[in-house]
């Protein structure tokens, strides 16, 4: 380490502070110098690390918002408009990381999805892969409709179709609309109960995380929780789509 050119020196300093801070849990100094406020170059960190957080799924949203505002006040490009080009670029990179991280973490679903991705679950390719895998193995594609909902979904699709036909013919059927409203209420209820499950899943995951720090959680347990979270998200997305379909159908007839 005899190179003393300014850039090299800078990068060494930032590396040090980055490491030091991750270990103590505070990310502040990794983002900007705590004595002169200069923005540090962006380093590839995950969204949890960016905020100096453990990979917990239960999050203190108020604290996250406070951190987001506080970091924005240091990193946003508007506050570096007079800096050298390179520093402006760093501020742009850092502040986009900050915004991306905050957007993802504050949303419960995006957060869970993101965590699963970090755990190596490929949600992106899940549905594509399911099709491909089914084809390759010659088995039928894994059914995503939760079995206990098959009947209701079938009925719903019929009714939505009927509603559309009615609309085309200019007819209206208050009973039908009433039934759809009932479905909507029932799906909403399911959504609420899935959300409860999700929260329970978070609790499990976070518990596991505490255990794994003391070295007692097995890979098997971890896998089980991950699978459970994936299953909850899939079901949730399915129900969300149903709610959307019913809403769209009802809105289309102005109900």
């Amino acid at each position: 380490m005899t190179d003393t050119s300014p850039t090299a020196a800078l990068s060494i300093v930032s590396d040090k502070s980055t490491n030091a801070c991750w270990s103590c849990g505070s990310m502040r100094a990794a983002h900007f110098c705590q004595s002169c406020g200069t923005v540090q170059p962006a380093t590839p960190v995950d969204y949890f690390q960016f905020f100096g957080l453990d990979r917990n799924l239960q999050l203190d949203l108020a604290a996250l918002e406070r951190d987001f505002y506080a970091l924005s006040r240091k990193l946003h490009p508007d506050l570096h408009a007079g800096d050298a080009d390179e520093q402006q670029q760093w501020s742009l990179e850092k502040s986009s990381q900050l915004n991306d991280a905050y957007r993802t973490l504050k949303d419960p679903i995006a957060r869970t999805e993101y965590l699963l991705r970090l755990q190596g679950v490929d949600l992106d390719e899940q549905s594509t892969n399911a099709t491909e895998a089914a084809r390759a193995s010659g088995t039928a594609k894994k059914q995503v409709v939760p079995p206990d909902m098959l009947e209701e979904v079938f009925e719903l699709n019929m009714q939505i179709e009927e509603l559309r036909m009615n609309q085309k013919m200019g007819a209206s059927d208050p009973d039908l609309i009433c039934q759809l409203e009932e479905h909507k209420a029932s799906f909403r209820q399911r959504l609420a109960s899935v959300d409860k499950e999700l929260q329970a899943g978070w609790l499990q995951w976070d518990g596991l995380l505490t255990h794994s720090q003391s070295g007692t959680a097995s890979d098997e347990e971890r896998k089980k929780v991950i699978d459970r979270l994936v299953d909850i998200l899939n079901r949730r997305s399915y129900i969300r789509n149903l709610v959307r379909d019913v809403n769209d159908a009802l809105e289309a007839v102005g109900a």
Partner: peptide, 8 residues
């Protein structure tokens, strides 16, 4: 691109 899973 690798398609995104929609969870909206």
């Amino acid at each position: 691109p690798i398609g995104k899973a929609e969870f909206e």
